[in-house]
């Protein structure tokens, strides 16, 4: 195994242990507001698709 690969694997192992720790905070997750936004976008697009067919 090359020194670089060994170094990479050691660093990955170190980071994986830290990230797997429940106290590690990866940052805020998507929330209800994002879900509402996605639903609104989806509904608007669905209406647009229907309109496109009507205008054929």
């Amino acid at each position: 195994m090359s020194d670089l690969l060994e170094g990479i694997e050691e660093e990955i192992a170190r980071r994986a242990r830290i990230i797997d720790d429940p106290s590690y905070d990866p940052g805020p997750k998507l929330d209800k507001n994002d879900l509402i936004g996605a639903i609104i976008l989806a509904v608007v697009c669905a209406i647009g698709i229907a309109l496109g067919y009507i205008l054929m």
């Binding site: 608007v44 697009c45 669905a46 209406i47 647009g48 698709i49 309109l51 496109g52 067919y53 205008l55 054929m56």
Partner: peptide, 11 residues
């Protein structure tokens, strides 16, 4: 044009 644009953008 109209169906192509609406289909494309919205899909």
């Amino acid at each position: 044009l109209a169906p192509a644009v609406l289909n494309t953008f919205c899909t």
